[in-house]
Amino acid sequence: MTAFFAFIGMLCLCLSMTRHQRDVLGRLLSTRLSSGLRGAGWVVLFLSFGVALPDGVLAILRWIGELSFAALAVVATCAILPSWRRWAGRR
């Protein structure tokens, strides 16, 4: 569960940046939407921490690891998505 939240949070943070909006979505989002995404991203990440916290130190260690690989998953997704879009656009 926390891993999923971590992924969503990281995705929001990623898409709040214009550089990635261009590459992944093909267009820029409004500044309001970007700021909103950034805020939402941080909130979701804190929520995922909050879910892990009651389960103790081991859960927090797991949370840190899940954060790292959520970020990696977002990087991978953003790297592949433009190619998928191009491939879908050509069909």
């Binding site: 943070l13 940046m17 550089r19 990635h20 990696l72 977002v74 990087v75 991978a76 953003c78 790297a79």
Partner: peptide, 22 residues
């Protein structure tokens, strides 16, 4: 923070740098 998610594939040296940073 700005570079956190940056990975540009198939750009030679740039890609290796991005991979190393990520």
């Amino acid at each position: 923070f700005a570079d956190f998610f940056t990975f540009r594939p198939r750009k030679g040296q740039r890609s290796w740098l991005d991979a190393h940073n990520v």
